[in-house]
Write a protein that binds this DNA or RNA. Structure first.
Length: 218
DNA sequence: CTCCCGATAT
DNA sequence: ATATCAGGAG
């Protein structure tokens, strides 16, 4: 496990690598962001953006998503994958938005996670990106990177990872750090071929050092 | 825990 | 061919 100083080093170095890390899901309001993040489960941002380009032209409001049959919405998001669950959740979510929140996206995480298809990660993203609340959404990248670096333990659950990050990262850096960890995981510390040889964190990364040794022996 | 699921990179 | 992708619900 990394100590406080080592974690500070990691955050600073990752900050240098990705100073402008931000949400890559295209959206122009909180409602579009909720839809985009919901769609992004187990799917790349690039593909979500490709689909939402047309989707957001056709559907502007919760009413619009409820005005078409479920099958039509399924068809419109089919290329995303998991489209049956996602289409159903979007219509459920829109119903609740209209009935409980007069068509607006609620700001608090507690309200957000109650919406269909919105779990802890999505709620954190929306709270952070749309409403400026300090939050650390733990997705596949944040989890993998935190575990490889030794910011948390390998066996930690996503909630434990989130709690550890909130404890070890200053609150005013939560949102930036969250995005930088995603960029680091997406473009450098990738699931398949992490770029350990060119990693500025190699000196503190046990996983990276392990992988480098494995390379030498081949 | 399993299921949902197509697109893309490797 | 197979792993992976800004997960969530039952």
């Amino acid at each position: 496990m990394l100590n406080k100083k080592q974690i500070r080093f990691c955050l600073d170095e990752i900050g240098k690598m990705f100073p402008d890390a931000e949400c890559e899901l295209t959206h122009s309001n909180p409602f579009e962001l909720v839809i985009a993040v919901l769609l992004s489960a187990q799917c790349t941002d690039a593909l979500v953006n490709k689909v939402t380009k047309d989707l957001f032209q056709k559907y502007k409001t919760p009413e619009d998503y409820l005005a078409v049959p479920l099958e039509e919405l399924q068809h419109d998001i089919r290329s995303i994958g998991l489209y049956r669950n996602k289409a159903k959740n979007i219509q459920k979510l829109c119903t609740v938005l209209l009935e409980e929140y007069s068509g607006e996206v609620p700001r608090s995480k507690d309200e957000l996670v109650k919406l269909a298809g919105v779990g802890r990660k999505t709620a954190n993203v929306v709270a952070s990106v749309a409403f400026g609340e300090p939050a650390i959404a733990v997705d596949t990248h944040v989890e993998r990177v935190s575990k490889r670096l030794g910011i948390c333990r390998w066996k930690d659950s996503v909630i434990e990872v989130e709690e550890t990050l909130m404890k070890k990262v200053p609150k005013d850096e939560w949102s930036v750090t969250h995005h930088r960890l995603i960029f680091f995981g997406r473009y450098h510390c990738k699931a398949k071929n992490p770029n350990c040889p060119e990693c500025p964190l190699l000196e503190v990364c046990r996983e990276g050092q392990k992988r480098m040794k494995k390379r030498e022996s081949i």
